[in-house]
């Protein structure tokens, strides 16, 4: 019993990381129709910068702010310099461009920071938390807390501000939105900046747990896709649920597969992603394919 509890706890904690990545992917997909392959690299970049700055004895808060700022700038560069302007852009071209950007960001991180993993200090020191036979690293409290705050903020912005309203309007019908005076280009920029910031925050809170190196972006991005698609790409809240679900399924699979089959657990998230794509394509596809005629 205490094992099941441990698996669920571990699943929810790793899942909260996937949820943060998935949320960024879902936001961009919702507003622009582009699937952003560089989302995982935002997480990597911020986490790695944060850890490196800490290793150089920069105070935690300053290191976090610097990592956040650099990552948001990279998001700005991606949207303004790499992607074609929204109106003229075809989404398949934009997707390939984000793939190119992802490769370049990873390569630059490798060249400037190196291949070794970097280690950040936990925000608060102390032994792991224990309850009912399960244990959890203290840092995960920060991850869950900050993830919850960020998600709440995203929800508030989307539902209670004019910008959020404009974003949702753009998502539903870009042409109608343009007619009512909303600039899709501005919305696209805003959502990329928001996604970069989300990714950066995720990377920073996870850095003490996951000892990031320059190669972690792709893996995180892939788990984020699984989260976003399973939850339904057009619903940011769905991406959060999807992320938690992927985390728990992975942990349960690792926990309950017989030891000779334990290697399969590694592929379970992608198998679930594939099943979701096959089983409910129309349901998942509604928004993104309602594209220009």
């Amino acid at each position: 019993m205490s094992e099941l509890l441990q698996y669920v706890v571990t699943g929810l904690t790793t899942g909260s990381a996937y949820a943060l990545v998935g949320l960024g992917i879902a936001l961009i997909a919702q507003v622009t129709g582009v699937i952003n392959f560089a989302q995982g690299q935002f997480v990597m970049l911020a986490g790695l910068l944060f850890a490196v700055l800490q290793e150089h004895r920069v105070p935690t808060v300053l290191a976090a702010l610097a990592a956040l700022a650099v990552t948001v700038l990279v998001g700005l560069a991606l949207e303004r310099l790499v992607l074609p302007r929204q109106a003229a852009g075809r989404t398949d071209q934009a997707i390939m461009l984000t793939i190119g950007a992802s490769i370049v960001i990873e390569g630059i991180a490798f060249v400037t920071i190196g291949t070794e993993p970097k280690f950040a200090r936990p925000f608060t020191a102390g032994e792991a938390l224990r309850f009912g036979g399960a244990s959890m690293d203290r840092q995960y409290l920060w991850v869950i807390g900050i993830a919850a705050l960020v998600m709440l903020a995203v929800w508030l912005v989307l539902t209670h501000t004019r910008t959020g309203w404009a974003m949702r309007a753009t998502a539903m019908d870009p042409d109608a939105a343009r007619l009512s005076g909303i600039s899709p280009s501005r919305m696209s920029l805003l959502v990329f900046l928001a996604a970069a910031a989300l990714g950066a925050i995720g990377g920073i809170v996870l850095a003490p747990l996951q000892s990031p190196d320059a190669s972690v972006g792709i893996g995180l991005g892939l788990k984020g896709f699984a989260a976003a698609v399973i939850g339904g790409l057009d619903r940011p809240a769905g991406a959060v649920a999807g992320g938690l679900a992927v985390g728990v399924v992975e942990a349960l699979a690792s926990g309950y597969l017989p030891s000779s089959q334990s290697g399969f657990a590694d592929g379970i998230a992608y198998a679930v992603l594939l099943v979701a794509l096959i089983a409910r394509p129309t349901g998942l596809l509604r928004r993104v394919t309602g594209e220009r005629v």
Binding site: Q210, G219, A251, S254, G255, S262, D266
Partner: peptide
């Protein structure tokens, strides 16, 4: 008595540790 395989990109081994120590 038991063994656990994990991927070279895994970031949390709590589940595997729980299983082998059990």
């Amino acid at each position: 008595v038991t063994n656990q395989k994990f991927s070279d990109s895994v970031k949390d081994l709590s589940v595997q540790a729980t299983k082998v120590t059990a």
